[in-house]
Nucleic acid binder design. Structure first.
Lengths: 140, 140
DNA sequence: TCGCCATAGATGCGAATTACATCCAATTGC
DNA sequence: GCAATTGGATGTAATTCGCATCTATGGCGA
């Protein structure tokens, strides 16, 4: 199952699903939810996450857990075990100040990227304009 | 040299360099330049490309050549050898109709992605708003 | 009490991607 | 002749991805 092939929207066409989990996109979303919703554990995070993903793709649980581990080694989150509730113990993650800063940095990066994409999209739209302007003026 | 670590802008912070070549981002840019500037060969493409990249990262030549090969097997470009000029033979690539369609699909994807990012950035910006509104009203 | 299911965390692994290095060939300048 | 430049292409170690699988706890019915 090569990446680039989206089994959800089918076929060959590009779609953000085919872009994979891209943990670099998972990272900021995790940080955001942690700051917005407060401390929580991976399994629950997996649910709230899907409302904030940047791509159409669902976030893989494996990718999520590994992202949390990496964020912890980088000091952007801290974790504690919660054994109070019923069921298996929960790994509770909290965002640190460093994590909040990291999220702001991420926002700056995504802002740039977003604008680059926007301008690229504009460029593509105006591609055939000159040739077609003579025949179809005013068509968007 | 782990990904996620940008040797150009240094350090730990996220930057689109650290996002890698992401051939799925190289693909649309290559298609765009091919449609905008007309048929050309890889080496020259490598130059014009850098003005249109979506990220800060330079596009790796290896990635470029492999992208062109993949685009050809997908039928989005065709190629011919140009042995007329001086120097080594040039592999001239031209975009096909299928390639133009593909580029438009890419534009739609990037448009969506761009908007998702924009809205995410807004969300991050409004994160501490409620808490700080009491003390610093009107600060952007 | 045994088996089964849901929750929860975590890892294994083949395939894909990346980043960089390297190789090959032809031409130009010296 | 030979180094430098232009051009194309591949090799490869490290990393990431996507999916499957493993472990463990507790609830619940038979």
């Amino acid at each position: 199952m090569p990446r680039g092939h989206c089994h959800r929207h089918g076929g060959e066409r590009p779609c953000t699903c085919a872009m994979g989990n891209l943990y670099r996109f998972v990272e900021p979303v995790v940080l955001y939810v942690l700051e917005h919703n407060g401390p929580t554990y991976g399994y629950e995070l997996g649910g709230n996450l899907q409302n904030h993903t940047l791509t159409d793709a669902e976030i893989d649980r494996g990718a999520l857990y590994r992202t949390l581990q990496r964020l912890e080694t980088m000091g952007h989150v801290t974790s504690d075990w919660d054994t109070s509730g019923s069921g298996p113990a929960r790994h509770i993650y909290s965002i640190t100040q460093s994590g909040k800063d990291h999220l702001r940095e991420w926002a700056a990066v995504l802002n740039n990227l977003s604008q680059s994409m926007e301008s690229f999209v504009r460029d593509v739209k105006s591609l055939g304009k000159v040739a077609s302007d003579a025949t179809t003026a005013g068509v968007n």
